[in-house]
Simulated scan of single mutants.
Amino acid sequence: MAPIHEFADADFTVRSWLDGTTFRVNRAKLGDGSHVFRDMFSCCDSNAGEANSQVLDLHEPGSALAVLLRLLHEPPPPPAQYLLEPIGEKVNTQLPVRYDAATAIPLPVLRLLLCLADKYALDPTVLESLGAHLLAHAPGDALTVYGLSLTLDMPYIASESSQYIVPLDWYSAEETKVIPSVPDYHNILRLQTFRVKALQDVLLREELFPHGYGRCSTHNASAESAWERTRLILASKIETNTDVAGEMESLVYIFQSCPTCSKAFTAAVQMLAYKCRRVPRRLDQLPSDC
């Protein structure tokens, strides 16, 4: 059968034992990029009778081999990375998007690539690039990324993706099946429970006029009443992904007619945003005793 594809500088043949599909490849690139191929070649070269063999049969379908061999010959660059602006005076506490998901390898293809990379022990630089592609999908499909990274023993990606997972009760039972074990499910539950309690505590402790500082003599009572009423309602509705400062900022219309109240309100919301950003949002930030 003619090769399905011939890579540059081909000097070796890889063949699918399952369907007979053949590939002309560069042997050195296979050995350089994979510990498994390196060990195979070392073992074969040590046997004089097999040293001249130029065909390697693998128990993989041709479609999987095509993906694996292209990965070894032409490793993909990492996805495009956004230039993140410093938070500065921004109030929003929502998570930034680090990578442009449109430039990332699609998840179904990436799943196959990662499984093959794990099976054939690919070079760490290739795994690092694939990990960046996987992480690029976390903001849009966090639970899938979390489950896949745990299955493939990628704890850094699991921890990074954990911050994008929305409340677990928003998912269906079928969707949560991507989480490989009960302890892994429980870890997310612990993180989200901790965040909700911590965010509630931050909100209920933050005063509009702390210690009377910046108090408005004209609108003091009405301003504090509006602040207190709103934060009590919000505290009962907080979820792990709630933008607490952003929700409180919706009160701005009440204070904008008074410069003194407006200044105090802006300062209070900014302080609230700062404190909320310090609340753990990833598994690796979770206190061990919680």
Results as ranks from 00 to 15, higher is better:
P124D: 15
G131W: 06
Q192N: 06
D153L: 11
R111M: 14
G147S: 08
E160V: 05
S172N: 08
L114E: 01
A121S: 15
V166W: 06
P124V: 13
P155L: 03
N187G: 06
I179F: 00
A121M: 14
Y146W: 10
P139I: 13
L189V: 08
L122D: 00
D201C: 05
Y171W: 10
H186V: 14
N187W: 05
V178Y: 01
S162I: 02
W170E: 08
S162N: 05
V166Y: 07
V202N: 00
P155G: 05
Y120F: 11
D201S: 07
L191E: 00
K119R: 12
E174W: 09
C115A: 09
L150N: 02
Q200F: 00
F194R: 03
L112W: 06
S161R: 00
W170A: 05
P183D: 07
G131E: 13
I188Y: 00
Q200G: 02
H133Q: 13
N187E: 10
E175W: 08
Q200E: 03
L122I: 14
E174A: 12
T176G: 06
R111T: 08
I157V: 12
R195C: 02
P180W: 02
P139A: 14
L134T: 11
S181E: 05
A132T: 15
Y171L: 05
L134P: 09
L122G: 01
L135F: 14
D141I: 11
T125E: 15
T144Q: 13
A142N: 10
T125H: 15
Q163A: 12
E175M: 11
L148S: 07
P155W: 00
A136P: 12
S149C: 12
D118M: 09
D118S: 10
D153W: 09
D123I: 14
R111V: 11
R190T: 03
V196R: 01
S161L: 03
N187M: 06
D201Y: 06
L189Q: 06
V109P: 04
R111D: 08
R195P: 00
V182M: 10
L113I: 04
Y171E: 04
S161F: 00
L127M: 15
V145T: 10
P180R: 01
L116Q: 00
H137T: 12
L112S: 07
R111Y: 14
Q192T: 04
G131N: 13
P180E: 01
Q163G: 08
A198H: 02
V109D: 12
V182K: 07
T151L: 14
D118H: 10
P139E: 14
G131M: 15
K177S: 13
A117Q: 01
Y185W: 10
D118V: 09
Y156P: 06
V126P: 01
K197H: 08
S181H: 05
